[in-house]
């Protein structure tokens, strides 16, 4: 579904990504983990079109989308959420979900909102609801509108471990139900290992390891990167 081929990103003299290559299979929940500065969010930015790659290609459903605009990618089915909550604070939850879903003629607003536990705040102004609900609105905004590939940039930011686990459970349920492939960048490693089908570990802009949660958990390079010593 998504193929990233030798993608590099330079910010001045800083190399945020150094020839990253990875594949995301259709229908999976693919987690990306790594220490701060590993290039996780930059990778999401490259796939969504927010940041242009200095080198390499991004293919989506077989098409090279490296030079396509953000709008084109969204209309092709690539949707994303943001590390910092990005909602319309002055609009009601319902109004903003309907507005964002309007382009894709997606009638599933109510279904997604209910599944994310937003039913009771649908007619509330988004800026006045609890932070956890705002994060779920952020996720809902990414989910509505005929999404095929969902890119989530730290959906658990600012949430407790329990809230993050609940959020991941929602993501799992909704993506399975709607046939959506998801790539999740997350700091909460436990949530990623518990929920994702496959995991890519980034370190200093390069792929350190990739595989199932069990394979990654037992990878010596990953253990060194995270614990500073081999098991």
């Amino acid at each position: 579904m998504l193929s990233i081929e030798g993608v590099a990103v330079n910010f001045g003299k800083v190399q945020a990504l150094r020839g990253v290559t990875m594949n995301v299979e259709p229908g999976v929940l693919h987690g990306i983990i790594g220490p701060n500065g590993a290039g996780k969010s930059t990778l999401i930015d490259v796939v969504s079109g927010r940041t242009a790659a200095s080198a390499g290609r991004v293919r989506f459903e077989g098409h090279d989308i490296s030079r396509r605009s953000v709008v084109w990618r969204k209309r092709a089915g690539i949707s994303r959420s943001f590390q910092k909550t990005s909602i319309f604070r002055n609009e009601t939850v319902r109004d903003q979900l309907e507005l964002v879903s309007a382009l894709g003629s997606d009638a599933a607003v109510e279904e997604i909102a209910e599944a994310l536990g937003l039913g009771s705040v649908m007619d509330a102004v988004a800026g006045t609801i609890a932070y956890g609900d705002q994060r779920r609105v952020d996720l809902a905004l990414a989910l509505v509108g005929k999404t095929k590939l969902l890119l989530l940039d730290e959906p658990g930011a600012g949430l407790s471990s329990a809230e993050t686990m609940a959020m991941f459970a929602h993501v799992r349920e909704l993506t399975e139900k709607r046939g959506i492939t998801a790539v999740i960048v997350e700091h909460d490693v436990d949530a990623v290992f518990a929920t994702c089908d496959r995991i890519t570990v980034l370190d200093l802009g390069s792929v350190l390891a990739e595989g199932t949660p069990a394979e990654v958990r037992s990878n010596d390079d990953v253990i060194v990167a995270y614990l500073g010593t081999a098991a």
Binding site: V70, K74, R80, S86, F88, N90, E91, L99, L141, G145
Partner: peptide
């Protein structure tokens, strides 16, 4: 008007929602 106000409030989100 609704779209313009939404862009005013959060241009990046509208862009990533597929709006020009």
């Amino acid at each position: 008007g609704r779209i313009a106000r939404a862009i005013q409030e959060n241009e990046e989100r509208m862009l990533f929602a597929g709006y020009r």
